[in-house]
Design a protein around this nucleic acid. Structure first.
Lengths: 349, 349
DNA sequence: CTGTTAGCGCTTTCAG
DNA sequence: CTGAAAGCGCTAACAG
């Protein structure tokens, strides 16, 4: 099997290589009998077409490049899995790379590697990092079809799928307000990031609507605020520790995402307080583990798998009609409030 | 930039394409001045070599295929990330595919897709599934360098990296025994799987050594025992529910992995019992979240990142010395007991 | 309906 | 040290 080529298949079937090629791809006319022969030869020889040769000649690689952020976040894993499933079912090869915080040089290199494979299209699901913006710019110049996932600001002329983070966050905030909470903190982003972080904007908007002044030290991000980062459990843990040291600590803490919320809960528990009796905690994403941690996490469920599928669908639709000029589509999905055990009425005093 | 080829680079630099090629790869003699010119041209034009063309001609794709199981398990995500990091730092492209339970046809297709890319080597980190065995067989026939991760039985002539699951599990069991536990259950595999599941074997061995008879209903796997499956939180949740219905329920439950343990804890808590006062729970893997759930999980820490790195290192070593005949290496790493809050002395009665 | 032919972009002898 | 030339395995016209 090392190096079975279409020549071998053609010889085995007693046809020319072009006939073999046609039969294999069901393109053009091929005598039914000969097709059968070819298929049989393929099976007998264990022929697997060489993607490189196909790509080189056909000027299409069948590769869809997928750039994601923190694979350590189960939410990302879910997304990745859903994209892979859809993409590979449609005959494409999913090529992933995750760019997190390995340094700009490393990330640059990873993108370079991706571009060398000449992907037919790109799905980008990272935070708004310098490096990913560069990639997007390159993609645009190269006319590389691209779909964005979860970027709050739809970057101009790309297709984009996103959940309504702002709205979701507003609903979450309103929910906490309805439970009597007034001292509500937000964890996982800096105030200065509001422009990029819809979840933070939603919180701010809801608080404003409720005429509650948000104290600057109620919004706490990671220690090194330099560049976009992917908040994780440690982020939440540290932030919550800090919040609990305030003279009057918050009665509710909204975390930017579920993994961050998990860290928040941990810190609260360690401080001898309990969730939700002393402090309510909410997450965002509804990762698979969210219902299993203790206390089960109240969160906004994001249709992650749907996002992945739609992004793939949008992209592939474009790929299969290369000439057709389709206006960029920006689709926003709604999130769903999932009330579990980590939230409760505000303590009476 | 759409379609900058080496011709363009050569033209821009005023040299022939072969000189450009040599300069780019630092192979053979090239006048220093001309090399400089070529490099400048590359930068000016934004040239990125076409991997397909290179692969086709050079008979090496620079792709390393990585087949993993359940991406929903954070442990897998960690592994994937570490492999990607190492592999891409060495100039290779990491091509992942995850095969879980999407049906044999789907998985077959995914592997086919992988093989079409003509990977230079393979890293396989799945359970012993029919489908992955097929792949391994194919790889062997094709002479495709392959490294296995975490397969308890090193499959013959492949390099393999694994942690000492059996030993780890023995230590864990001994630890629970030392806390006075006698009724210790194992969750996440069927008794019949002992041959493949080192963690189960370790538990059985330690129990035997302690002269404690393991009751068959103390070892509980998933509902559909048909084929290898990836145990997750739900597995643990269901299994624990069942265990708690026994006349005398276990005083300790060892889960096959951390995500399973999380489900176990949830079930116990829901039943109105508490961890570790009523039932101790242990996991395996030490996923990043393990210390953050409540109660923090006692578990065996597996050197996951090390595993990924070593596997990549072994494989790449082989790739870079294609002629040299290296005997297959099987490396076993040791695990580390991490005692956290989910385990305690057995209740006095 | 089928075979011949001309490359896709790149690497690699092989003569200069 | 450098350029010309011959393909890698496959697809897509193009004549049969």
């Amino acid at each position: 099997m090392p190096g079975v080529t279409i020549h071998d298949v053609a010889a085995h079937a007693g046809v020319s290589i072009s006939t073999a090629s046609r039969a294999l791809r069901g393109i053009g006319y091929v005598d039914a009998g000969k097709r059968e022969l070819v298929l049989r030869a393929v099976a007998a020889l264990g022929y697997v077409p060489d993607a490189s040769a196909q790509a080189l000649r056909a000027r299409r690689s069948g590769v869809i490049g997928i750039v994601v952020g923190d694979l350590g976040n189960p939410h990302t894993a879910t997304l990745v899995h859903s994209i892979e499933k859809y993409v590979s079912a449609r005959g494409y090869t999913a090529l992933f790379t995750s760019v997190v915080d390995d340094g700009e040089a490393m990330e640059q290199k990873a993108l370079q590697t991706m571009l060398r494979q000449r992907p037919d299209g790109l799905i980008v699901a990272t935070l708004q990092t310098h490096i990913s913006d560069l990639l997007l710019q390159q993609a645009r110049r190269a006319g590389l079809p691209t779909t964005l996932i979860g970027r709050s600001l739809a970057s101009g002329d790309f297709d984009s799928i996103t959940s309504n983070y702002q709205r979701g966050s507003e609903i979450l905030t309103d929910y906490l307000l309805s439970l009597g909470h007034r001292r509500i903190a937000f964890v996982g982003a800096h105030l200065s990031e509001a422009e990029h972080v819809g979840r933070l904007r939603g919180y701010l908007a809801a608080m404003q609507r409720a005429r509650i002044k948000v104290r600057p030290d109620w919004v706490v991000g990671d220690d090194k605020p330099a560049r976009p980062y992917y908040p994780n459990s440690l982020t939440g843990y540290r932030a919550a520790k800090r919040l609990l040291q305030l003279r009057t600590h918050p009665s509710a803490i909204m975390a930017r995402n579920d993994v961050t919320a998990i860290g928040v809960i941990q810190a609260i528990t360690e401080a001898g307080l309990s969730v939700p009796e002393d402090v309510s905690v909410t997450g965002f994403d509804d990762i698979p583990l969210a219902g299993f941690i203790a206390p089960a996490l109240t969160t906004m469920s994001q249709p992650t798998e749907k996002e992945g599928e739609l992004a793939a669908e949008f992209l592939i639709a474009r790929l299969e009609r290369p000439d057709e000029v389709i206006a960029p589509r920006a689709l926003t999905l709604e999130c769903n409030l999932i009330v579990r055990a980590s939230s409760a009425r505000a303590p009476s005093r």
